[in-house]
Design a protein around this nucleic acid. Structure first.
Length: 398
DNA sequence: AAGGATGCCAACCGCAGATAT
DNA sequence: GATATCTGCGGTTGGCATCCT
């Protein structure tokens, strides 16, 4: 697997781009598309390597880039997605269609990471640094045991889903689904997501927790082509049958593309403390103290072409953007991140060590355990699923 | 006002997967 | 199947701007 010399070639310019270079690159791509990046500089009359041209285009010159300050909604989306995906900036960027991965990465490193750290939240794990789950008080042991059990459930489901996805993708190797998978969102990408999630949570596939109740999990993959009139809609459903804190639960989701039963939970909860929601959501999602019972993902394939570029309309331009902002981030919209996360710190400071809402109770409510706890998880995952459901077509998440 | 510290971000580097030969 | 090349991605850096002492 040799690596091309690229910029090592003598005579090629490096460093900041001049307006003249920008103009040349822009003009060439608008007329011809970028084609082979390697061949582009010579054709465009640029003393740059193709890689440099590609970077300049994708991070700066592309017409569908929004520059400037990140909105609160964007910030919240980044934080949530980072909790879910880790440093997968390109995947995160697909949910902020007008932002580049580089920009998001920079913004995370220069703003959000520091902000979370200042709030006492580990920006890597998205958990409070004084992890309440590790506290010997407040029923920590039983919760941890449940956590481990559900981690294992999730892991089991993940492995099963992985195998199934591979099978399915092979079976569909000659139809549009295969095309979609191979060109924009590979089956492995979804598994990478899950892998990343588990990695973020600090688990590994070698988890050896005792599962006294072996969970079963299913993942179905269906394709709804809607005749030929539109892009195919892929629906993947992961169903879990297993134990939870509240006892045996079996939920069979209807495999619609709408989650009416969950939708609205987020917005209805906007009067609660955002910090608690954040902490609950992140913490619970990472530890899986509750079970995600049904997960439906929809994708619409929409090819991204040079032509669409030229018309200032990237393939993922508007798909799901508004719904993402209205659905997913509404969960967090009643306050500013700063203020609420400050509340988070205050809460944990005043809670005498049991502060983590994921452990001892959320939002100041008494922790009667099961239902509230479960509901918090549901809210969180609802927000994630809303986001996923509104994923742009080229999202590498699934 | 000056110099150092810090923030910010565009661009580079190098790895790894995908594709071509 | 082996090797070469292309491309995408994430981590890091260099340099300018702003803030602080």
């Amino acid at each position: 697997m040799g690596r091309s010399p690229c910029c090592d070639k003598v005579g090629l310019k490096k460093g900041p781009w001049t307006p003249e270079e920008d103009q040349k690159l822009l003009a060439y791509i608008e007329e011809h598309g970028h084609g082979s990046w390697r061949a582009l500089p010579a054709k465009a009359g640029l003393q740059r390597c193709g890689k440099s041209c590609r970077l300049r285009w994708t991070n700066y010159l592309r017409p569908d880039i929004k520059r400037g300050k990140f909105s609160l909604q964007e910030e919240q989306t980044i934080i949530q997605l980072h909790a879910l995906l880790g440093n997968r900036w390109s995947a995160i960027a697909t949910h902020l269609p007008k932002r580049t991965d580089n920009e998001i990465k920079n913004y995370w490193n220069t703003h959000l990471k520091k902000r979370l750290a200042k709030m006492g939240i580990d920006p890597v794990t998205h958990k409070p640094k004084n992890d309440a789950l590790l506290s010997p008080t407040c029923d920590g042991q039983s919760k941890n045991a449940a956590n481990l059990s559900h981690m294992a459930q999730w892991e089991s489901a993940r492995l099963e889903a992985e195998a199934r996805l591979v099978r399915e993708s092979k079976l569909r190797s000659h139809n549009s689904f295969h095309h979609l998978i191979s060109t924009s969102a590979s089956a492995s990408a979804s598994l990478q997501l899950l892998n990343k999630t588990t990695t973020t949570a600090g688990w590994s596939t070698s988890t050896t927790h005792d599962l006294d109740q072996s969970p079963t999990s299913t993942l179905t993959f269906s394709e709804n082509n809607n005749n030929n009139s539109g892009p195919p809609v892929i629906s993947a459903t992961i169903g879990f049958i297993g134990s939870s804190d509240t006892g045996m639960i079996k939920e069979e989701g209807d495999h619609h593309h709408h989650h009416q039963d969950w939708k609205g939970l987020g917005s209805s909860s906007t009067t609660t403390n955002l910090a608690d929601q954040y902490k609950d959501g992140i913490e619970n999602s990472l530890s899986f103290t509750s079970t995600l019972h049904d997960m439906t993902i929809s994708m619409e394939a929409a090819p991204w072409t040079p032509e669409s570029l030229r018309t200032n309309n990237s393939g993922h331009a508007s798909v799901g953007n508004s719904s993402m902002e209205e659905g997913f981030t509404n969960l967090l919209l009643n306050d500013s991140v700063d203020r609420s996360l400050s509340n988070s710190c205050r809460d944990s400071d005043t809670s005498g060590g049991g502060g983590g809402s994921g452990c001892c109770g959320s939002g100041g409510s008494d922790d009667s355990g099961g239902s509230d706890y479960y509901q918090d998880n549901k809210n969180y995952w609802n927000s994630i699923l809303n986001l996923v459901n509104s994923s742009p077509p080229n999202s590498p998440m699934f």
